[in-house]
């Protein structure tokens, strides 16, 4: 059986959207896929040593909130100071209580399983990001490098 390939582009840097790339990549690796994730724009936050990701109900009508708040809580009030911190803390607690892995753990499992993590060099330069803030084992490259692998992948996801 020839090894299948999965290519993922991770573009989002919020706590909720950080999960799909790492869950799919680690699972694919466990299934024997050769896997690569290309992190670009806000997705680069997922490569920071110190993950300080947040989730916000602001502008996200699909996000379930405690006590069914998403049904009656005025949208404008989700912009109040402290809302983001509160929702982030509640989401983290909920995940821990349900046995959902932390992002750090999933990311580590990805690295253990030899998922290749590639940071978009252009975005790193654009936002003047310091690569010493990123975890070890990250490759820095551009779009052409992504296509080299994505072009022969069996599955290619944009997240």
């Amino acid at each position: 059986m020839e090894e299948k390939k999965l290519a993922i582009i991770a573009t989002k840097g919020s706590l909720d959207w950080a999960y799909p790339p790492f869950i799919l990549a680690s699972t694919a690796a466990a299934l024997g896929y050769e896997t690569e994730i290309f992190f670009t724009f806000y997705g680069l936050q997922l490569l920071k040593k110190d993950l300080d990701l947040k989730v916000t109900p602001l502008g996200n009508p699909g996000m379930p909130m405690p006590m069914g708040m998403e049904k009656w809580f005025p949208t404008l009030l989700t912009a109040l100071p402290g809302m983001e911190a509160m929702m982030t803390s509640m989401m983290k607690k909920k995940m821990a209580s349900k046995g959902v892995a932390s992002l750090e753990e999933l990311r580590e499992l990805c690295q253990e399983a030899e998922v290749r993590l590639i940071a978009c060099q252009m975005t790193v330069d654009l936002f003047d990001m310091d690569s010493s803030a990123f975890i070890d084992g990250v490759e820095y490259a551009g779009a052409a490098r992504f296509f080299e692998f994505a072009g022969e992948s069996d599955i290619c996801l944009y997240i």
Binding site: S26, T27, A30, K98, G99, A101
Partner: peptide
């Protein structure tokens, strides 16, 4: 107590 995808990853 573990949720998706941890049981699969641990098993692997």
């Amino acid at each position: 107590g573990l949720n998706c995808p941890l049981p699969i990853l641990r098993a692997k």
